[in-house]
Design a protein around this nucleic acid. Sequence first.
DNA 1: ACATGTGCCGTTTTT
DNA 2: CGGCACATGT
Length: 895
Amino acid sequence: MPGFPDDMPFFDEPAPPPRSGSSDRAPSGIAARAMAARQASAPDYLAGLNPEQRLAVETTEGPVLVLAGAGTGKTRVLTTRIAHILATGRAFPSQILAVTFTNKAAREMKQRVGMLVGEAVEGMPWLGTFHSIGVKMLRRHAELAGLKSGFTILDTDDVVRLIKQLIQAEGLDDKRWPARQFAMMIDGWKNKGLGPSEIPEGDARSFANGKGRQLYQAYQDRLKTLNACDFGDLLCHPIRIFRAYPDVLQEYHRRFKYILVDEYQDTNTAQYMWLRLLAQRPQGEGDWRSSAEGRKPDRASAGQAAPAEGQPPQAAMRPVSENRVNICCVGDDDQSIYGWRGAEVDNILRFDKDFPGATIIRLERNYRSTAHILGAASHLIAHNEGRLGKTLFTEKIEADDAKVHVHAAWDSEEEARAVGETIEQAQREKHNLNDMAILVRASFQMREFEDRFVTLGLNYRVIGGPRFYERQEIRDALAYFRVVAQGADDLAFERIVNVPKRGLGEAAIRQVHDTSRALRIPMLEAAEKLAESDELKPKPRAALREVAANFARWQAALDHTPHTELAETILEESGYTDMWKNDRSAEAPGRLENLKELIRSMEEYESLRSFLEHVALVMDAEQQENLDAVNIMTLHSAKGLEFETVFLPGWEEGLFPHQRSLDEGGRSGLEEERRLAYVGLTRAKKNLHIWFVSNRRIHGLWQSTIPSRFLDELPEAHVEVDEGGSSYGGYGSSYGGGSFASGRGGRQNPYGASRFDNLGAGGSGTGGAGGSTSGGGAFSNTYATPGWQRAQQNRTEATDRNWGSRSGHAVERIGYGETDSGYGAGRGSVKGRTIDGELVAKSVSATPSPFTVGDRVFHQKFGNGNVVAIDGNKLTIDFDKAGQKRVLDGFVQGG
DNA sequence: ACATGTGCCGTTTTT
DNA sequence: CGGCACATGT
């Protein structure tokens, strides 16, 4: 391997020269000096760190796991640690490998290290995301993976289109075997680092009549001929190269003296393997792998919150031993929320086994939230098993800190209304909207808030919406650029060959395709050839000739034309901009604007190629921060953020925890949901408002819902249940008086105790509704009792029916088996219609609804009305006050 | 080529 | 129910 171009450090601190030759570590003299210096007078970057943080920064040698709870200064530790390594001359910037998951995190880290150390970080070439570092490596050794260095990185859309072609080429039915699904399977395999020959037989057989493996192989072959790779390959190729070419791996071993990993709990198996390979020291395996067992995290399986007992005084600096790997992973097992996309919490749970003798440091001192919020979060997360155990605490406890508020609302509309009011109230008290966030479980929940805020005229911003690069016009433009940069990029070529319309229909494109396959040349070349031959009709032939000529010209200009200029030329000459200029639709001007923005953003890059790389890897678009607006986002995208006031709506069984997580993930699925709840709670600095509603529209039908079990897992001492209800108008009051206070209409939780069961959902304000029996009075510790346990079990079953998974058939909600608690109070009780898969699907048509057209009925949400139509168990009812709605018969009672 | 029709699906998302 | 992807018809 040629030497690395950026090998020469350009770090001009008073650092010692690099250790010559073999040693990978700093001479112990430096460490000693650093220690001495620390005792005398610590460098100012260490000032202000608490003892645990400082330990995490100064334990530079050997494997270290920093368990950093939410808001405990994780990023600070990471950046200070880098600064410390640099400042004490342990390594040059180019000798530190620092990996993050997101570009945002990488950017922030770069910036903060820069602030600590000065400009010298410019020279940290190996600080970046797993993927960006992966590409960097792969570009260097592309030929070892059968690629050329200029390879294209395909995005998900390209991948799906490609797979679809392959499925069709196999003569398979692409409806029966959806490309998207296979793309997901491949992604899953790559997350585990599995190549076509390594996937489990079962997986291989389960797709495409047992052709899964073959298809996967065909896909990889196709990528190779396209000189392209997908995201998974950015790690899988390097892994394979490291294994097959030890000399290459060794280069990296020599290079990286320190490895740092952010958000370790989110690593997947491939990332883990990649790290392991880089962290392994072949000659020194013996030392760190078999050394006497280090301290083990004995507080694992903390069923009960572990008290914040003082940390065992860990040695500030371990003796430097020859072959220990200086890898430092930072993460929080309690915030692992990406299991569904391949993250293995187990990686972090196993750390001390993978790296025996690892130092484990817990950061539990929280600087973000009030004691009430932390108390609630800690208590909730303590319900998880299999955690390393960690309890956040804070030292600043104010007497007037607010407890965590739990509110009930009648339905999601009222929920949005009430949250809106709380926000407006806060705004009147001079709080910034920027400091408030609504964190939802699923994005469909956002709409209701948006609608409400639009009518209120309240500014809001949605974080994590559709992205810039995903827009049609951007992707089209990029496709042009890709073909220019890499003529073999057939996917890009196909995308734009007839955009704008050039009269190249299906037939013509097929022809190009076939030629390309037959001659084994890229489609662009095939097009060129076809344009010369007379196999095509004159019209498409001329069109192809022009396209080919255009690309030839642009490609020729690539090296001697400024890339922004070239980009503009391409879009002009291809007729792409004209296409939108002539478009009369409402979006057209915006699209043109986006294209301008695209060109503008290219200026920051050296070349078209480096720009394309950036686009492939970086998806975030800048948000306008200057506007004061309420933030709306999913819980997932809230990780890592903090807000003064946080609203957590939708805490209902089925939505949160999400039914699908429960169905597919079982116990671990539930635990991940709980961690998600924990993430949500710990985003709040001062005020936290949790909401649940009694009625939510699911797939177009109103369903009654049950408070989330997570509510019951909050500690009474830190929670205040809002009994006031909000001002809710509508029909609520008209019937609030009675019916369901006694548990009618499905409001009652038939399997027992939840202290929220009778909390007046919106109606409590009006006296009887929801039962003033309820609220605070019913607030008791129900968890941990046998009854509660039982309830949990029943609850799962019942909510299954509530949210019904599609595989089972229709969304159902027909009584609760034996425990029929008064749904069908009036006529035709639905009792006993215990449903079960197949049977119900039939029963929908076979079993007529207990109601008939014209019946007078009562519904919890809409009040009284007349049945006007019946479709199986779905009733269309003309309500007196609410108009016409469709509801399930289980929700109404005969009037 | 564009328009309307049909069927399916419905959590979370980065790179 | 509503949005999207695909399919068929003019």
